[in-house]
Design a protein around this nucleic acid. Structure first.
Lengths: 134, 134
DNA sequence: CACCATAATAGTAATGATTATTGTTATGGG
DNA sequence: CCCATAACAATAATCATTACTATTATGGTG
């Protein structure tokens, strides 16, 4: 076989397009709602399965942020996130990872340190506005 | 009424004792199993309800780490955690919070920054041993 | 000490996100 | 054109957590 059997179907294209369009790190069901405009009878299971497949293949990144739902990111470069404590929205924090932190962690535990994430919490601009007017 | 109606029941005492005994930041069902030795017919719902009540009252801390389950900590002082990518165990990283990080985050987003967590990932000593022997 | 309002409980049902299953459809190489 | 199989839609199952309900326990007051 010449290809590895990975087919870029209409559904996958739609999910990927939608994910690349936004900066909000959407949840599976948010993507499902958005993608339904292109593929009206796509299944939620299909969205989940393809998000899983694509993150396993390194095409996208699954971010396991605090809260009940997984979120997804078209940016596969390592970077930090900030999460709104009101609405759950997740945005990027423009800063690169800091290797010194991992050294610090490995010195103070018996763990073999593999990586780290920093998650900031705060109030996003939209919620600040809603607070002010509401 | 003189008191605020908070009763330190046998069940609450047992949950709190168990949580203070360990450093592994157990999940609700782990605490449930442990507490059953003291209170054989305690309900899982009671464990959840009291963990919720006690963390709302600031007696304990609920930590929302990556992964599907909530974890709980008797140490209410702010500190960082490290999570084993194999077994999910969570331990402390001996380092204090770093305010400069939050300033950095607020400068690169439009958020009003309220806080942050750092979660390290790695392999805990028990899993390292299991890898070596298994 | 007995009473009573109510906090808290055990047991169970419901919820919500995710994963698994199943039978069907679509695709692309030979 | 055919066939193996990747992928699909629809739906059922799972798992952590929360909500509900009827019952029990507690502690202050008369």
């Amino acid at each position: 076989m010449t290809s590895d059997g990975f087919r870029l179907t209409r559904q996958r294209r739609a999910i990927l397009d939608e994910l690349r369009k936004v900066t909000s790190h959407p949840t599976a069901d948010e993507l499902y709602e958005a993608v339904r405009r292109q593929c009206p009878n796509i299944s939620l299971g299909t969205v989940y399965r393809n998000l899983e497949t694509m993150s396993a293949n390194g095409i996208i990144r699954r971010i396991d942020v605090a809260g009940r739902q997984m979120r997804f990111d078209a940016d596969i470069e390592p970077h930090y996130h900030i999460r709104c404590v009101h609405c759950g929205r997740v945005d990027d924090v423009g800063s690169s990872t800091w290797d010194r932190l991992e050294k610090l962690a490995s010195e103070s535990t018996e763990y073999e340190v593999l990586g780290h994430t920093i998650e900031f919490t705060g109030v996003c601009p939209a919620c600040k506005e809603r607070e002010r007017s509401g």
